[in-house]
C-alpha cells in the first residue's frame, strides 16, 4: 500500500496534541510541582535549586520548616516563600548559598 508522504508527520503531530489534550482533560498533564505524588523525595534532596522556596524544600523533603531555617543559619523572620536564589542575592543573608540548604536538609533527614 502506498500512502501519502504527509501521513507520518501529520499523524504524529495529531497524536502528540491529541494525547496531550486527553491528558489535560483527565488531569494527567502535570508539568510542575516538586511536592506532588510520585516524586522521589530522597533524590529531591540532591536537586534543590534556586528556583525553590524554603517552604517547598521543607515540604518536599519532609523536614520541619522552622528547623530548616535554623539549620540554614537564617533568622526566624526570613521570607519562607521567597525563591532561594533571591535570598542568595539578597544582602541580608551574607554567606547563604543554595548549597547551604542542601547541607541543612541532609543534616535533618
Amino acid at each position: 500500500m502506498i500512502v501519502s508522504r504527509w501521513v507520518a508527520p501529520v499523524a504524529s503531530v495529531v497524536i502528540l496534541f491529541g494525547t496531550i489534550g486527553v491528558a489535560q482533560a483527565t488531569g494527567g498533564w502535570v508539568t510542575t510541582g516538586r511536592t506532588g505524588p510520585g516524586v522521589n523525595t530522597t533524590a529531591a534532596t540532591q536537586s534543590i535549586t534556586g528556583r525553590m522556596t524554603l517552604r517547598q524544600v521543607a515540604d518536599a523533603n519532609h523536614v520541619d520548616l522552622a528547623k530548616l531555617i535554623v539549620a540554614c543559619g537564617l533568622p526566624a523572620d526570613v521570607d519562607v516563600d521567597a525563591l532561594l536564589k533571591d535570598l542568595v542575592e539578597s544582602d541580608r543573608y551574607p554567606g547563604f548559598e543554595v548549597q547551604t540548604v542542601r547541607d541543612a536538609v541532609a543534616s535533618l533527614k
Binding site: 491528558a23 502535570v30 508539568t31 510520585g38 516524586v39 522521589n40 533524590a43 529531591a44 540532591q46 536537586s47
Partner: peptide, 9 residues
C-alpha cells in the same frame, strides 16, 4: 516513583 524533575507530562 519518578526520578527528580520528571512529571506526568
Amino acid at each position: 516513583t519518578f526520578i527528580t524533575k520528571i512529571h506526568g507530562s
